[in-house]
Computed example of a mutant assay.
Amino acid sequence: MEDLQHRVALALLSYAAQRGVAASHLCRLSGIDYAVLARDASMQLTPVQFEQLWKNAAHLTQDSLFGLHFGESMQLAALGVVGQVILTSNTVGEALDHAGAMAHLLTDLYRFRISRDSRTTTLHFMENTRRTQRYPHTARHFGDYLIVFALHELDGLLPKRIEPLSARFPYVIPDHHEYTRIFRCPVKGKAGELSIGFHRRYEDLAILSADYSLQNFLLQRVTAMCAREPDEAALLKQRVFHYLLSNSYRQMPGLEAVAANFNFSPRSLQRHLGEEDTRFSDIVTRVRQQLAQDYLRAGQYPIKDIAAMLGYEEQRAFLRAFHRWTGLSPAAWRRQQQAGIA
């Protein structure tokens, strides 16, 4: 199996490229041979290299919350990591237990533990203080990454996003508004631990393991599409398109989330996109149309599931949108495509 830390490193570089930073340049500054890292899945980075990678990524993207935003964008790209958890679990509680058993493969800076009482389930990421003090940039960014990624993976197991009860951090929170936006609950810094808690009732819910094939199909399509486009040299509208595409499972990110990811205010992002003769809403429409056509062309997915995947609460709204894009109903468009292939 590919080393999970190696996979995280490649995902980090891909995300940095999406933010306009060349992966080769980031590696060079961090003392990493990018060519070897890209082709050799067994290559392991040293703790010092990881420390430099996190530090330089935050500096070059001018994002002090790089780990937080990386975790927010990692939801789809990590399917290869969580797929086995999804396929071997029936409930959210089982998925958490199985994921906990894998956590040590990602890092030795934090140890994963689950605590439960009559009302609350809490995910704890307990510091190895000797290691976190030695590698403070890794500890901070990777800590943010772990906890927000855990939340987004829980979201992906259920039909609707969970509502956490609290999120706690052992360090000072530099931007309370941004942390609250991402975690959707009260957040507290300097709390002595890194943890997130949610209502215990979620543990008994059945996970959407049947949707794993749809998720995996989406991952394959995103990978193929992004490979055809320039990465760090791309226009802002292309990078926003890729970001939306990579984070479109079940809920399309809103303007505020995308703007924060690219270090803009919502108004500023709209202005920069206007300079490239496009609007944020135009890009959202393009992403939805592209994915809808890909799902329909694949042939095996029900239209109601496609509508849900694209974030439409009602199938009728999807049907109207698709007719506006193509002049056809989804069913008629799929038949036309299948006839053309035949």
Rank of each mutant, 00 (worst) to 15 (best):
Q84L: 11
R184D: 02
A342Q: 04
A9C: 12
R250K: 15
R119P: 07
S265D: 01
V187D: 01
A292Y: 10
V240R: 00
Y202L: 06
Q289W: 08
R324S: 11
I114A: 12
L10R: 14
F142W: 09
M43S: 12
F66C: 06
A257Y: 01
A99P: 05
G80I: 08
F264A: 02
M126G: 10
Y295D: 13
V85L: 09
S14I: 07
S213T: 09
T278H: 00
R28E: 13
V222E: 02
S115Y: 07
I114Q: 14
A298M: 14
H141W: 13
S89G: 12
A307R: 01
Q5T: 14
R184Q: 06
L218D: 05
G254V: 09
V284G: 00
A257P: 01
E127L: 06
E276W: 00
E94R: 06
R111F: 14
E232I: 05
L157S: 04
A234Q: 06
L123T: 06
L214C: 13
Y145W: 14
R250M: 10
A95I: 02
T223W: 10
R267T: 12
A99D: 13
R279N: 04
A224L: 09
D144N: 15
V82G: 12
D33N: 13
Q215K: 12
E163Y: 06
T132E: 09
S64M: 10
K190G: 08
V82L: 12
D305I: 09
E163V: 03
V36W: 04
T285A: 15
N128T: 11
R184E: 06
F112G: 08
D175H: 08
L235D: 01
V8G: 01
I196V: 05
H25S: 11
Q290R: 06
H141D: 05
R335T: 12
A292K: 09
E51N: 09
F183W: 00
L208R: 03
F112D: 13
Q75Y: 06
V48P: 05
E313M: 14
H98L: 10
A57F: 08
L218E: 03
A321T: 01
T61G: 00
S42Y: 06
D108Y: 13
R119M: 04
A99T: 15
D294V: 03
I173E: 04
N90C: 09
K237W: 07
G71N: 05
V240Y: 02
